[in-house]
Each structure stands twice: as C-alpha cells, then as structure tokens.
C-alpha cells in the first residue's frame, strides 16, 4: 500500500528531493562506522608489522649476517665470548614439529571430515560437529600439559628413550590441536559440493567411495588444501604447547626422538629475560619479522588456492 502511494505522482515529494533527511544521515553514519571497522583491522595489522619491524630493525642493521642468521645452527645470544644468532636449528625444530603434526592431523581431519559430511546424518552428524568444534576450543596450555605429563612418560615407556619431550610428542600434540579446526573447514568444503553431483555419480553406479574419491574430493580440492594450509599455519604459529612438549633444546634433529626448539617458543621463553633494546632483544624481534613473513606467505598461498587457481 505504501509503495503504491510513493509511486503515485504527488508534487510535495518532488520538492523534498534536494533536502537531506534523517535516512540520508543515518545511511552516511552507518557507512562511516562500517568503514572504520573495516579499515581498523588493516591499520592494526600494519601497526603490528611496523612495531615488530622497528624493534627488529636495529638487529638487521647491526649484528645481522644473512648466512649466519639462516644457515648457522648456533643460537647463542647470551654467549660470553661471541654471540651467534643462527636460526637453522630453530627453523628445523619448527619445521619438523609442524611437518610431523601434519602427518598426524591430515589423515585424521580429512577422514573425520569425510565421515561427517558423507556418511553420517541427522543427530549423529550434529553431535560430531559440535564435539569437534568444542575440541578446537581447548586452550593450548592444556595440550602442552597433556604432552608434559601424559605423553612424556608414555613415550619413554613405549620407545625406551631417555627423554619423552621431543618431535614425536610435540608433533602428536600439535596434530591433535590442529585437527579439529582442519576438520571443520574441510567439512565445510565437502558440504559446499552440490548434492546433485552426488546423485549424478551414484545414479550412474558409482559406489560411495568411488563417488567420494572421483567426484567429491576433486570438487572440494581447493577447500581441502586450504584447510590443510590453515593447519600448517596453526602449527607454525603455535607457541605454548610446543614450548612445553618439544623439550626446548637447540638441536638439529636426526630422528623424531630428538628434542628441538621452535622459533615461536624461543621468543616466548627469552623475551622476558632480555634487556629492552639489547642485541638479543632485537634479534628476537627479527625472528618475529621472519615468522610474520612466513605466515603471510602461507596465508596468501592458502587464500589463492581456496579462491581457485583452476588450471589442469
């Protein structure tokens, strides 16, 4: 009814067109608020990057040597004779733990996602989804605690090794930590595949598994890769659980039973003990820059993949 009135020609309406009413101001206000909300995220991220860069810049300009920083396994920032700032062992620690975590998490999370999305239904499906999302909310310090008090003696007992805080321990803990969020994302990706693909494949005589393997997984490929990369990013950035479960000793690992130390854990453990502005302090921020860069690249790649580089 009101629409009809508005459409019908009435002279008073025309004269009001050049005046701004409350709707117009409200619309502008909403636009400005949304803009501030949106832009602030970007401002914060740039702010953090600038802050980390400024703190780390002193190191990059001074003690930083490219070959030592990236290729020396010696991280001895507090040495009395000669300080060395080599990240190789720390990078190896982070990489090995993250890699092992993915070995654990990828089969678990993809399996769980496929089961939830394709095989379960109704109440069971809802229950599983809620439970898995609950798992994702467990604080990382709790996971670290489990690594320290449960996994540690178990590994010593089962494998007869002197120390149970090692790549194996941290990898499993980190894998279990990353699996819920990966499952959740992967399940979303599978559910986004239209049902008509399933019906078409099954109607032509594909078995459940053939349908999943030949049709659903290729269709959801990008989303699944995105889920895995998200897990990698999670493992890369995780600090507390890794600090507690790796053994935190600087080492170039040769087996999964070696203790290692991660980049993130190094910052967390040492930053409180350094004098603000010292070489050591600045070197830790340089690690921060490095982590920032790597995480940025991982996220960028994940984003590109999820958006779909659909070739071949």
């Amino acid at each position: 009814m009101e629409q009809n009135q508005a459409q019908s020609p009435s002279p008073p309406l025309d004269t009001r067109f050049d005046r701004l009413n409350s709707d117009w101001y409200f619309d502008k206000l909403a636009q400005v608020l949304m803009f501030i909300g949106g832009i602030s995220v970007i401002v914060f991220i740039i702010g953090i990057f600038v802050f980390v860069s400024i703190e780390g810049f002193g190191f990059l300009a001074g003690k930083f040597e490219f070959s030592e920083f990236f290729f020396s396994p010696d991280w001895r920032p507090t040495s009395q004779t000669k300080e060395t700032y080599g990240l190789l062992a720390l990078m190896a620690g982070t990489a090995s733990v993250t890699g092992f975590a993915m070995l654990v998490a990828v089969p678990f999370s993809l399996g769980a996602a496929i089961y939830i999305a394709e095989f379960s239904s109704g109440k069971k499906r809802e229950f599983l989804k809620v439970t898995i999302e609950l798992l994702a909310a467990i604080p990382s310090v709790v996971w670290g605690f489990i690594g320290l008090t449960i996994m540690n003696p178990l590994i010593i007992q089962i494998f007869h090794v002197p120390v149970g805080l090692n790549i194996l321990n941290a990898g499993i803990i980190l894998g279990l930590m990353a699996a819920p969020i990966m499952t959740s994302i992967a399940e979303d990706a599978l559910k986004a595949v239209p049902d008509r693909y399933r019906e078409a494949a099954e109607a032509m005589g594909a078995t459940r598994w053939q349908m999943i393997y030949k049709v659903i997984l290729p269709a959801a490929k990008n989303g699944l890769l995105g889920a895995i990369l998200l897990g990698v990013g999670r493992g890369f950035g995780e600090t507390m659980a890794v600090l507690m479960a790796t053994g935190h000793s600087i080492n170039l690992p040769t087996s999964v039973f070696d203790s290692v130390r991660a980049l993130t854990a190094t910052i967390a453990a040492e930053l409180g003990e350094t004098a603000v502005g010292s070489d050591h302090y600045q070197a830790l921020f340089a690690i921060g820059i490095f982590l920032f860069a790597v995480t940025f690249v991982i996220n960028l790649v994940a984003d590109l993949i999820v958006r779909g580089v659909r070739k071949g």
Binding site: Y197, A200, A203, V215
Partner: peptide
C-alpha cells in the same frame, strides 16, 4: 542410465 532435469556437468 539416468538424465536429470537440470544438467549436471561434474566439475571434471
């Protein structure tokens, strides 16, 4: 074999 009302080009 079945052909459905709406064409289903599988994403292959």
């Amino acid at each position: 074999g079945v052909v459905f009302p709406l064409p289903v080009g599988l994403p292959l």
